[in-house]
Design a binder for these strands. Structure first.
Length: 679
DNA sequence: GATCCTCGAGTTCT
DNA sequence: CTCGAGGATC
């Protein structure tokens, strides 16, 4: 069947519409039509192209789903070499960079185009007559691999340029995978029991190097343009790098919006700091920022040193991920006897600190990640603070790498280790006989949210327990200045401070005291519920499993833990000794019909750092009015209080449409709640 | 019985 | 912060 002119026009319109929607969705991030409408247009075009094969075109949006596999990548010589940038790590490096530029140009002050340095793969796109003819990886800078088929699957890359365009145009930029797409990919890989990717960069590299472009199409990649290669013909904007980027944006290339023009060293460093603070919350990984002299004529005058331009530099952030070697896997014993395998690492600088330890959580986790002693591993300290072993670099595994086994006996006290059916944690059965558990129990008792004993830290507890000076919390209240002063690194003065701290802790609350006891499954929140419900310690001690379950959030398991704790004669004895030593609190009649408070039933979640209130202060103020402060955002959360550097909770809140407050908003809410108690 | 939500517990470094 | 598991809810 021949192609009627009318149908040809229809096909062209469909292609235009689909590319327009791709642009709105993938470049502007502002979809104009529902996905279903896009799908409908797409299928209509597909059907027409199938019916009229002569209308097929490599530029058609239908080709973005990938095609038949290739057997190898051809190599491509870049019309202009793809350069690398010099790296800078310190402010001094940047001061020196700016000084050399000013001296080279003989000017007082320089305007710089500043932008993000994406952690992805550099590529070059070549357009001839406004059509994408090929795209290649950077390779060695002179020659790269032709990955055109794969690049076509990236929706934000224009296949055809609209409007006037130069006859030859090379666009340089970065292909990367968004963090959320990376996570989804790994979830899928996990579900299919396939190998996980270590990070978005590896995943993007893997996707781009697929010989089967249909696989590339199924992994979502993103592209940002940041420079130009060869340009012949009209249309290009000269003068300034920033103007070129604006021009690329008008040509409908995705250009990252965090770019800016700043003046002088102060501008560069301010940008570095600003982006550094927002780095974790960006939707993609970056490993630094890039500074380029904005004036193109000035760039030309500065020229190149060996393979890198003199007019630009990459200012790097401390790496979020690094490679290091597992020296050993130790087992730590926690307060509840939980045995936690910990990787002892070759010290490595990640995320601004030197990391030497990383938890491996439990036996299953070690197995899942297959971490062995001697392995080279990827360590991350992203978003949050706590180092994490992301994955093992299998290629670097020495033949004598040692597989980790959970010990059968506690490494501290030698008691048997058990791992109950269906549970992830192995535990030492030594109980308080185990010095490690005793130490942790004492530290918990003294901790800020429990009895809040100032001056009683880990070092001191170690000495007290190892020297057999203290066995139970009650022993703490028998300590004198002289006994403490005999210990190492403990002079009269600090000994007196510790005794004062212990003395001060005697005045406490029932909830704190219950929490301090360290009953299994009873944390801060449950301790408070128990204190509210029973009102006195004796009523709690006398409660049986049925009575206990009347308390909110106490079910059979928690009730059993509590009952078992108080059934132990030893525990009751320590409690008596503590009371005899003068530990006291105010008791009440229990279940006191508390007056309704303005924030009853309202749930808050805090994230980030507030300007003036500490987390605890904010929490206390909310709770004072009857509100609850939860740890994670859900549909039942009423308000999320957002400070500086918020975590993932702010994103979640936006997703779930939970109202967000800043500190001022919170204070205002508290104030008006106080004023009108019935809301 | 499944699913959602919350709580508990463990964790690093300065 | 994250995971695992207990409790509540449908």
């Amino acid at each position: 069947m021949t192609l009627p002119a009318e149908t040809a026009g229809h096909i062209a319109r469909l292609r235009e519409q689909l590319e327009h929607h791709n642009y709105s969705y993938y470049v502007l991030d502002a979809p104009e039509v529902p996905d279903a409408e896009y799908d409908r247009l797409f299928r209509e075009l597909q059907a027409l192209e199938a019916q009229f094969p002569e209308a097929a075109s490599a530029d058609s949006p239908t080709q973005r789903v990938g095609g038949a596999p290739q057997s190898a990548f051809a190599s491509v010589t870049h019309a202009r070499p793809m350069l690398s940038l010099n790296n800078a790590f310190t402010e001094d490096d940047i001061v020196g960079f700016d000084r050399r530029i000013r001296e080279g140009l003989k000017v007082e002050s320089v305007d710089y185009a500043v932008e993000l340095k994406f952690d992805g793969l550099a590529i070059s796109l070549r357009y001839e007559g406004g059509r994408l003819v090929h795209g290649a990886t950077r390779g060695d800078g002179a020659t790269g691999e032709d990955v055109t088929a794969n690049l076509r699957t990236i929706r934000s890359i224009p296949l055809v340029l609209t409007g006037p365009a130069p006859t030859i145009l090379e666009v340089r930029g970065e292909v990367l995978m968004l963090k959320r797409d990376f996570e989804r990919l790994n979830d899928e890989q996990r579900a299919r029991d396939e190998k996980l990717f270590a990070n978005p960069r590896n995943a993007a590299a893997g996707a781009l190097r697929q010989l089967d472009s249909r696989i590339t199409a199924s992994r979502k990649l993103t592209f940002f343009a940041y420079g130009l290669g060869q340009i012949d013909g009209d249309g290009a904007v000269g003068g300034r790098h920033s103007a070129q980027m604006d021009w690329l944006e008008r040509l409908r290339f995705p250009v990252n919006r965090e770019r800016r023009v700043v003046t002088g060293v102060a501008g560069l460093l301010a940008y570095y700091r600003e982006i550094g603070e927002r780095r974790a919350s960006l939707p993609f990984q970056i490993d630094g920022v890039v500074y380029k002299v904005d004036d193109l004529a000035a760039q030309e005058r500065l020229g190149f040193v060996s393979r890198a331009p003199r007019f630009a530099v990459a200012h790097k952030y401390p790496p979020e991920e690094e490679l290091t070697v597992v020296r050993d896997i130790d087992v730590q014993v926690g307060r509840t006897g939980a045995l936690t395998p910990t990787a002892r690492l070759e010290p490595v600088f990640v995320g601004g600190v030197t990391v030497t330890n990383a938890t491996l959580h439990n036996e299953d986790e070690v197995q899942r990640k297959d971490v062995r002693i001697g392995d080279t591993v990827i360590v991350r300290r992203a978003g949050d603070v706590i180092p994490e072993v992301v994955a093992v670099v299998i290629d670097r595994r020495p033949p004598d790498a040692i597989v980790f086994r959970m010990p059968a006996r506690c490494p501290v006290c030698g008691s048997a280790v058990i791992r109950p059916e269906g549970e992830a944690v192995s535990r030492c059965t030594g109980g308080l006989y185990c010095p490690a558990q005793r130490k942790q129990a004492l530290l918990h008792f003294a901790s800020r949210r429990a009895m809040d004993i100032e001056g009683l830290g880990e070092k001191l507890v170690d000495q007290l327990v190892d020297g057999n000076v203290v066995r139970t919390p009650a022993d703490l209240y028998r300590l004198g200045v002289s006994a403490l002063a005999e210990l190492e690194r403990m002079a009269e003065k600090s000994a007196a401070n510790v005794v004062a701290g212990i003395e001060k802790s005697k005045d406490t609350t029932l909830a704190r005291f219950i929490y301090a006891l360290g009953i299994r499954n009873v944390g801060e929140a449950t301790a408070r519920d128990l204190a509210d419900h029973f009102g006195s310690l004796d009523r709690l001690i006398d409660a049986n499993v049925e009575t206990l379950q009347q308390v909110p959030d106490v079910g059979p398991v928690v009730a059993e833990s509590i009952a078992r704790f108080f059934a132990e004669a030893h525990n009751r004895e320590v409690i008596e000794q503590l009371r005899a030593a003068g530990v006291h609190w105010i008791e009440h009649e229990g279940r006191a019909a508390a007056a309704p408070r303005p924030l009853d039933g309202r749930t808050f979640v805090l994230t980030g750092t507030l300007p003036t209130l500490t987390r605890d202060e904010a929490k206390a103020r909310i709770e004072a009015l009857g509100g609850k402060v939860a740890g994670s955002v859900s549909a039942k959360t009423h308000y999320v209080v957002v400070g500086a550097d918020p975590g993932s909770k702010a994103e979640k809140a936006a997703q779930l449409n939970v109202p967000m407050l800043d500190e001022d908003g919170l204070l205002e809410l508290l104030k008006s709640a106080q004023a009108s108690p019935d809301n």
